[in-house]
């Protein structure tokens, strides 16, 4: 008896491409629509505005700072959640998701209220101003993007074989050394993903910043605020110009980060 002739694989790949292509098509169409609505003249206006140039700088610096801070808390927290069992772990796991679940305006409002309460107010008077100031921008971005970074790091550590750490311990490492010398380098790709995700998230963040830091031109205006300010006077062309600029900046930074972060790891 001969085996039945295998069916062609073409329909399978066709189905996958069709379904996947729907989303790719949507994103591409959105970008095309944005580009079609703006003109190089509008983009020129965007670049010429000192307010928007200031917003570009603030966005770049604050997002990078927020993303680095996010990774610094996400690595330990993701590790603890992934590798250890402690009382209240399930609760903490849920708690970390709260910033993702909360409506952005509520995040901002909560930050605002927190810094009006006596300890927050004391901090603002004696250390430095947070609300309506640049540290607040970074904090608002950090509050949300760290949640994404923690998720990423948790999954990363879940996927790393804990036995490499065990082996390192038999070879003379304390737990801390095993983590530092073996696990962390293996988590490199996850850390990079967490960083870029946090960065992109921080760049797009708007609601909490607007509520917590206001939209003061030249001071707390980030690019997403610029979009809002332009949109709120009906200047759709400029709003889209800034949006395209954000996309450009994001793509540039993410590509650079990947190229540097994965260099020499054989992953790219």
């Amino acid at each position: 008896m001969t085996a039945p002739r295998p069916k062609s694989d073409v329909p399978f790949y066709l189905c996958l491409s069709l379904l996947g292509g729907l989303y790719v098509g949507l994103v591409a169409a959105l970008l095309v629509a944005d580009v079609a609505y703006t003109s190089t003249v509008d983009l020129g206006h965007v670049f010429a505005s000192p307010q928007i140039r200031a917003a570009i700088w603030l966005s770049l610096i604050s997002c990078s700072a927020a993303a680095i801070l996010s990774v610094w808390v996400a690595v330990p927290l993701g590790y603890l959640l992934s590798r250890t069992r402690f009382p209240g772990r399930g609760f903490i796991d849920l708690l970390v998701d709260v910033p993702i679940l909360l409506p952005p305006l509520v995040v901002g409002l909560s930050l605002l209220i927190l810094f009006q309460m006596p300890p927050g107010a004391w901090f603002q008077r004696n250390v430095f101003a947070v609300a309506y100031a640049v540290p607040g921008v970074v904090l608002a971005q950090f509050a949300v993007s760290a949640a994404f970074a923690v998720r990423t790091m948790r999954v990363t550590f879940d996927q790393i074989d804990p036995r490499t750490e065990d082996i390192a311990r038999t070879l003379g490492c304390s737990r801390a050394q095993a983590f530092w010398l073996v696990t962390l380098p293996e988590a490199r790709r996850g850390i990079l993903t967490a960083f870029t995700l946090a960065w992109a998230r921080a760049l797009g963040e708007f609601g909490p910043i607007l509520v917590f830091c206001g939209a003061t031109r030249m001071r707390t205006e980030v690019l997403s605020t610029s979009v809002f300010l332009e949109l709120s006077i009906g200047n759709l062309e400029a709003a889209l110009g800034v949006s395209l600029l954000m996309i450009g900046v994001a793509v540039f930074v993410l590509v650079i980060t990947r190229a540097f972060g994965l260099r020499g790891t054989g992953l790219i």
Partner: peptide, 22 residues
Amino acid sequence: VELRFGASEDILTKVRFPNATE
């Protein structure tokens, strides 16, 4: 003069929760 913009509801909220230092 420092202008801080926001939708009317939002700025009303901010006025309601004044910043201690500003």
